[in-house]
Amino acid sequence: MLRNRPIRRWHAALVPIALLASTPAHAHLVSTRFGEFYAGLLHPLTTLSHVVPWVALGLLAAVQGIRGARWNLLAFPLAVAIGVLLGSWLPGFDAGLQWGNIASIVLLGALLATAVALPMPAFLGLSVLFGLSHGYTNVVSELEGRALLLYTTGVACAGYLLVALLGAGALVVVRQNWGLVAVRALGSWILAAGVIFAGFSLLGQPGA
Rank of each mutant, 00 (worst) to 15 (best):
G131F: 05
L108N: 09
L166N: 04
D94R: 02
L126E: 09
P77H: 01
L60H: 14
A164W: 12
I196H: 11
L86E: 05
V172S: 12
Q176K: 11
W54I: 12
P6Y: 11
G40C: 09
V116M: 04
V84M: 00
G87E: 06
N4M: 11
A192M: 14
V52C: 10
L90H: 06
G167N: 10
V30T: 03
L166S: 07
L161N: 00
G135N: 04
L143E: 01
V51K: 06
T114I: 08
L186V: 14
N138L: 08
L165V: 15
V139R: 01
P44Y: 04
E142D: 08
I7W: 06
L166A: 11
L162S: 13
F93L: 14
A115C: 05
S49L: 07
G58L: 05
F34I: 07
L111M: 11
V116H: 08
L112T: 05
A113W: 13
A79T: 06
Y151F: 15
G199V: 06
R8I: 02
V140Q: 12
P44W: 02
C157V: 11
H43Y: 01
F123A: 04
V183E: 05
T46L: 13
L132I: 11
L45H: 01
Y151Q: 03
G92V: 05
F123Q: 01
T32I: 08
N101A: 03
I17S: 11
L74R: 02
A79K: 04
I66N: 01
G179F: 03
R3G: 08
V174N: 07
V106Q: 03
A27F: 13
Q98C: 00
G87K: 02
G109K: 03
W10M: 10
V174R: 09
A164K: 07
L180W: 04
W178D: 11
L126T: 09
A110R: 04
L161Q: 00
G194M: 10
F200K: 15
P77I: 00
L111H: 04
M120R: 14
A208W: 13
L126S: 10
A69P: 07
S49W: 02
V181A: 13
A79L: 07
G199S: 07
L124V: 15
G58E: 01
Y136P: 11
R8A: 13
A103S: 13
Q98F: 00
V140W: 02
H43C: 00
L97S: 00
A75N: 00
A198Q: 09
V155S: 09
V128C: 14
L148C: 06
G87N: 04
L191M: 09
A115F: 02
P206H: 10
M1S: 09
S188K: 07
L165Y: 09
G109V: 08
L202Y: 14
L20C: 08
T32E: 15
G83V: 00
W10H: 14
G131D: 08
A192L: 15
T152R: 03
G100M: 10
S88R: 09
V163D: 03
E36G: 04
G100V: 07
V173N: 03
A56Q: 02
G87L: 03
M1P: 06
W71G: 04
V55L: 15
L162V: 14
G145E: 06
V195C: 14
L2C: 03
F123L: 10
